[in-house]
Simulated scan of single mutants.
Amino acid sequence: MLVQLRQYKHEEVQFDDNRTTGESQTEDTVNPDSEEYFGKDMDELDVETWETVEHEDDPIQRRSVTIGGVTAVSVPRKPTDEDDPDLPGQTIQLRMGGGIENLAQAEIVEVQDENPQEPEAEGKVSKEDESHGKASMDEEP
């Protein structure tokens, strides 16, 4: 399965620069012309980018996470030690071929099958065919 999540953390504010609380630290440090600087567009690079959003009038950071190859998704019944009641989300447990990964302070956005199997239609009649009735080929109009 392909799982898309949002993960949250407290903003790591550094007051030794000219930045004000709420400004994104990640965007401020990235050269806006990334293709010229890195030789590639930023979307092509595997970079962890957190954006600053507001939650209950406080700035927090959020990122989108997409993970493939997941076989099961679960949410613990009770909060874990990693869960922070001041942030949205909770611990999400992902089971994959190589083991189990926990993502703290996460919310599920979407889960989808990467390789959906089409059911075989052989021997099945649609409700539309049943309700309208079909004339056989031998009947005259």
Rank of each mutant, 00 (worst) to 15 (best):
E114M: 13
P88Q: 01
D81K: 08
D86K: 12
G97C: 02
D84F: 10
Q105N: 06
Q112R: 13
V109A: 12
A104V: 04
Q90M: 10
P85D: 11
T91Y: 15
K78L: 06
I108P: 09
R77K: 09
K78A: 14
Q93C: 14
L87T: 09
G97Q: 02
Q93F: 07
P85E: 10
G97K: 06
V111H: 09
E114D: 09
I92C: 07
N102D: 07
L94I: 00
D81H: 07
Q112P: 13
I92Q: 01
T91Q: 15
V109W: 08
P79C: 00
L87E: 03
D86F: 05
G99K: 00
R95G: 14
D86W: 07
A106E: 06
V109I: 14
L94Y: 07
Q90N: 12
P88Y: 05
R95T: 15
Q105S: 08
I108G: 10
Q93M: 15
D83V: 01
R95Q: 15
P88H: 03
K78Y: 06
P79L: 00
N102K: 09
A104P: 14
L87D: 06
K78W: 04
A106D: 04
I100K: 06
Q105Y: 02
T91C: 14
G98M: 02
Q112K: 15
Q93Y: 04
P79W: 00
Q90Y: 12
L87M: 13
A106V: 02
K78V: 11
K78E: 08
K78N: 13
P85Q: 13
A104M: 02
E101Y: 05
E101R: 07
Q90R: 11
D86N: 09
I100Y: 02
G89V: 10
I100R: 04
R95H: 12
D83F: 03
L94C: 09
E107Y: 12
A106C: 03
D86R: 13
N102H: 04
G89Y: 06
E114T: 14
G99Q: 00
G98V: 02
L87I: 08
V109G: 05
Q90K: 07
D81C: 01
E114R: 08
M96P: 04
L103D: 01
M96E: 12
L87N: 04
I108K: 09
P88G: 01
G89S: 07
Q93H: 15
D113M: 14
E82G: 08
R95N: 10
D81Q: 06
D83T: 00
E82A: 09
R77Q: 10
M96D: 03
T80C: 02
I100N: 02
V111F: 12
T91M: 04
D113H: 11
E107V: 15
D83L: 05
E110D: 08
G99L: 00
R95E: 14
P88T: 01
P85G: 07
D86G: 13
L103W: 05
E101W: 05
E110G: 02
T91P: 00
L87G: 15
V109Y: 05
G89I: 10
